[in-house]
Amino acid sequence: MADKLKFAFYWNASCGGCEVAVLDIHEKILDVAAIADILMWPVAMDFKEEDVEALPDQHIDVAFINGGIRNSENKKMSQLLRQKSKYVVAFGACANFGGIPALANFHHKESIFDRVYSETPSTVNPEGVWPQEITEVPEGELSLPTFFNTVYMLAEVVDVDYYLPGCPPPPDLILAAVEAIASGNLPPRGTVIAGEKSVCHSCDRVKEEKKVTGFRRIHEVIPDPERCFLEQGIICAGSVTRDGCGTRCLNVDMPCRGCFGAPEGVIDQGAQLLSTLTTLLDTDDLEEVRSIIGSIPDLSGYLYRFTLSDSLMKRRIVAELKDKEVASH
């Protein structure tokens, strides 16, 4: 079938959940298979870099790329797929905003390696061996990709045509994207395939007076399933998160974690969430505000759970870090 579309799926720094999400469309995968050939899908099929390199430019119709850009291989493969594809879709929270891997931007390469290869209780590494980019062995030279100090979102290394957020993206949005491509009925470049307003817009919970005296975590309380989480003092990122997920977490009594990123108009999801939380506090006493906000465990991680690469600060600034790669972006 000569008219079939050509898709590629690729993963960068990711957990594999986005790959599973593709399968979450269940039997509809057959419909996808009916309209498209999959030219690359590392999780399911064995394709080599050389195979992609051999393709003519723009040969692939759509590349769905998930994961953040953690190392030089992620960057190189993304650039290669960009070159070979008509459209690139940033697939999932990590590709869209850095996602969970980008929380490592509160650290840097050295401190991460130190933690992983030396400090963790399960590590025994008395000689302090760390992975090296180049290792000489009798057979020749072995190489590993360069580990960046900073995790980037996909749009920082290639031009992205469409954004499909979520951790992972929900099946209905994946199908909507595929259908739009199949029908040729494409939205303007740069469109986020999701809602525009915030999750609150779709959330059915009763919203009344938003005034709280402190915050608790979801496992510490039995929440009222009918009432706004924030009003119960439970941090919910719904108010600063783009709509379109179908309030999946809220439906099962879990507060929103923010995986769709900021809604249209919001510049920095984490800063906006912090601003919202402080607004809720029923006090004018600055010290009290400080103490309540300070009591939230891993506050920065909470605020920027999915969007550190997409934030104004992008990463923790480490004064002594003189990294050319940071400067180059």
């Binding site: 525009e196 915030s198 609150c200 817009h201 938003k210 005034k211 108010s239 809604p263 249209e264 108009g265």
Partner: peptide, 15 residues
């Protein structure tokens, strides 16, 4: 107010 973005959460009203 940019109405397209407003979700009617009412946070602003009491403030």
């Amino acid at each position: 107010v940019v109405e397209e973005y407003c979700t009617g959460c009412k946070v602003c009203i009491s403030l």
